[in-house]
Amino acid sequence: MKILVAEDEPIMLKTIALRLRKDGYDVITVADGREAIEQIEEQNPDLIITDIMMPYSSGLEIVGKVKASGQRNVPVIVLSAMGQENVVVEAFNLGADDYITKPFSPNELSMRVKRLAKTA
């Protein structure tokens, strides 16, 4: 199973990747929104984890793009420091499958990925 992680803070990106690889997933890491959009098209991941505040494209835009494309069945988890109600609602409206606010626990993330991976 292939998971794409988009996050601009290197430590965060490395930690998430490490945690998910421990669970036996294949992880693709990208550091900005544009690269994320490119890699999603190219690599066809089975699950996407994205930050919101990234260079070039916001995570919400990525959610909107994925859910409006042929990959709409790919689950997307939004992982962001923005916990404002309107942002969370917007993310779900755009089709996000889960929303985790930072500070987050990598273990919790791993559990949520597992749950979504089952349905995917």
Binding site: I11, M12, T15, A81, P103, F104, S105, N107
Partner: peptide, 11 residues
């Protein structure tokens, strides 16, 4: 920076 973004065991 790390604890600002992570909680739980990691923090």
């Amino acid at each position: 920076k790390t604890v600002k973004n992570m909680s739980g065991n990691a923090a």
